[in-house]
Design a protein around this nucleic acid. Structure first.
Length: 571
RNA sequence: CGGAGCGUAGCGCAGUUUGGUAGCGCACUACACUGGGGGUGUAGUGGUCGUCGGUUCAAAUCCGGCCGCUCCGACCA
């Protein structure tokens, strides 16, 4: 590609509203432009990267036996009513009516549509298993789009859906998708981890997320230091403490704690460590009642675990201040389990506390020296908290560390949730109708591009892995408008390399300054760079530089061909 | 939706306190010099100051409504 015929929309200055490095570099390198909140136009350079990612995904999906389809972005509301998600999905589902007043939505995901396709077109067990995928634009009306393409409202996703007649068969496809995903992210040289994940509201049994490890990630991933165990913090079990609860040794005492509400305030005020203060949170119960969730003060509620409790309403909803006032006649900062007439569920760690402090269910008062059994009823016990670094690993080996991850892929065993609701059935060998079991598998294509940049950049710009670089080689002439020889050498080399199948960006604008071209080529992250000038030509060499290496090297012109063959990945 | 902040040229910003000719840097156009690592000079292009209304002789500036955006908390690939 000749740069004179290609939109290189690079910018020197960092746009003010770009927070994370990938967002900044994508804007500066001219990959994307913002159209509105959470909506981005992909410029020519960005599209080239996107196409590379899609190509890798297609190759791996095809190799794993999946078939490509393409489903509409706009979907009939009826279908979503049939699955029960039209009202359940929440405000992320953008709904609208057509001119006839029929309801439609923009697809945030495509379970309904594939399941509908399958129930119409698959009739026999002979067609099972089947795995259909597409690469399509999705829309989720995110509350807060941010980090550019990392959490946008419109995004491109590869989603696949498999159909089976047995759990065993589903497991096989699931495992095959697991390895296909590892292959996809491996081909992009990403430092990633498959981690155990919560199946969330979609339900089903097995689920893994694929996370790219990066500081800017929005998820906490926990690892065992002595085994392969890795899980999303939402999923990671906090084991019960091994030590027994101490005997009560202090007397219960009520203390005035004016204006002390948070655990931090209370622990400072009472001069007690946070581990000695009990945290009591009120949430809406499944029966319309209120439930008290109790944690050690220094621990954090794991909302997914809480939501998965039967007694707790799903989605999780904290009790409003008004509701608390009505039930307990006090504010949220002064609640405790003593004489509390609500169902109380305590975290495994909280229940081993003794002589602790907690709210007195009376504004501006706390209790100290409180003990379970003696002062308040033994609560129900559950795993309610987020694990913290240093906790024992739930796999039984090692302790946990926590890192940030960007979720770029997610695989699920869905079970029969959608096939049952939409009656996706086929006849088995005995002529009997059987409901299909489903799996679903997503890769955030656009998000993956951002994740790659998060892991591959320096202070000059992006450093693309060979497999998804927009161009392999940048060809830069020095003063071509002055030197016929340079121009000719570059023209020839450009033609030759292009003919051989290399993707070359030829910086052929006659008056472009060398420094500007070099800076641009580094900013947009092209892996290999050739600089051709009079001096080099006279001494029979061409300057080469690898984007990842700090130094130039001169390559003899007559060896250039083999040098490139050896050092540049042909795609 | 709650809390904080912003809206002035394609990008980054000043000007708003104290009302009085719309500015700077980058980018862009032309020319010249320069020419082996974001160069210099000269001359230019580009703005109904988010929007609607009010106050005033006069509003980017003061007042009010609306819209949009960003950041911090609840969603997910």
């Amino acid at each position: 590609m000749r740069a004179s015929r290609f939109l290189l929309a690079t910018q020197k200055e960092v746009p003010a509203d770009a927070e994370v490095i990938s967002h900044q570099l994508m804007l500066r390198a001219g990959l994307i432009r913002r159209l509105a909140s959470g909506l981005y136009t992909w410029l020519p350079l960005g599209v080239r990267v996107l196409q590379k990612v899609k190509k890798i995904v297609r190759e791996e999906m095809d190799a794993a036996g999946a078939q490509e389809i393409l489903m509409p972005v706009v979907q009939p509301g009826e279908l979503w009513e049939e699955s029960g998600r039209y009202d359940m999905f929440g405000p992320e589902l953008l709904k609208f009516n057509d001119r006839h007043g029929r309801s439609f939505c923009l697809g945030p995901t495509h379970e309904e549509v594939v399941t509908d396709m399958v129930r119409r077109d698959l009739a026999s067990y002979r067609q099972i298993p089947a795995n259909f995928y597409q690469i399509q634009t999705k829309f989720r009306d995110e509350i807060r789009p941010r980090f550019g393409v990392m959490r946008s409202r419109e995004f491109i996703m590869k989603d696949a859906y498999s159909f089976h007649l047995s759990q065993k068969c589903l497991q096989e496809t699931y495992d095959r998708m697991h390895s296909a995903y590892s292959a996809v992210f491996g081909r992009m040289d990403l430092n990633f981890r498959p981690v155990l994940a919560d199946t969330g509201s979609i339900g089903g049994s097995g689920s893994h997320e694929f996370h790219v490890l990066a500081e800017s990630g929005e998820d906490d991933i926990v690892f065992s230091d002595q085994s392969d165990y890795a899980a999303n913090i939402e999923k990671a079990e906090a084991l019960a403490p091994t030590n027994e609860r101490h005997k009560a040794s202090a007397d219960k005492l009520e203390i005035a704690t004016p204006d002390q509400h948070s655990i931090e305030e209370v622990s400072t005020f009472l001069k007690l460590p946070q581990e000695q203060v009990l945290k009591t949170l009120l949430v809406e119960g499944a029966e319309g009642d209120l439930i008290a969730l109790v944690l050690r003060g220094d621990h954090q509620l794991n909302e997914v675990k809480a939501e998965n409790l039967e007694a707790v309403a799903s989605p999780l909803q904290f009790a409003s201040e008004a509701r608390i006032q009505e039930a307990l006649s006090c504010k949220p900062g002064s609640i405790g389990p003593v004489d509390l007439s609500l169902k109380t569920i305590a975290d495994r760690s909280a229940v081993t506390m003794a002589d602790f402090a907690c709210g007195a269910n009376k504004d501006d008062f706390h209790l100290i020296g409180v003990n379970w059994e003696r002062d308040c009823a033994e609560p129900e016990v559950a795993d309610l908290r987020n694990v913290v670094a240093g906790d024992p690993s739930p796999c039984g080996q090692g302790t946990l560390t926590i890192k940030r991850g960007i979720e770029v892929g997610h695989i699920f065993q869905l079970g029969t949730k959608y096939s049952e609701a939409l009656k996706a059935e086929v006849l088995d060998e005995n002529g009997k109708s059987q409901t299909l079991t489903m799996g679903c598998y997503g890769i955030g294509i656009t998000r993956t591009v951002a994740a790659v940049i998060e892991q591959n950049h320096d202070d000059r710009g992006i450093i693309w892995p060979a497999s998804i670089a927009p161009f392999q080689i940048a060809l830069i002439p020095i003063n071509p408008h002055k030197s016929e020889a340079v121009r000719e050498a570059c023209d020839n080399l450009y033609e030759q390399l292009t003919k051989e199948g290399y993707e070359v960006l030829y910086m052929d604008e006659p008056k472009a300054r060398l420094g500007v071209m070099l800076a641009n080529v580094e900013l947009i992250g092209i892996p290999h760079r050739l600089v051709i000038g009079d001096r080099g030509l006279e001494s029979g060499s061409i300057e080469y530089r690898n984007r990842r290496k700090p130094e130039n090297r001169d390559v003899a012109i007559d060896q250039l061909h083999s040098f490139i063959n050896e050092n540049v990945e042909k795609l």
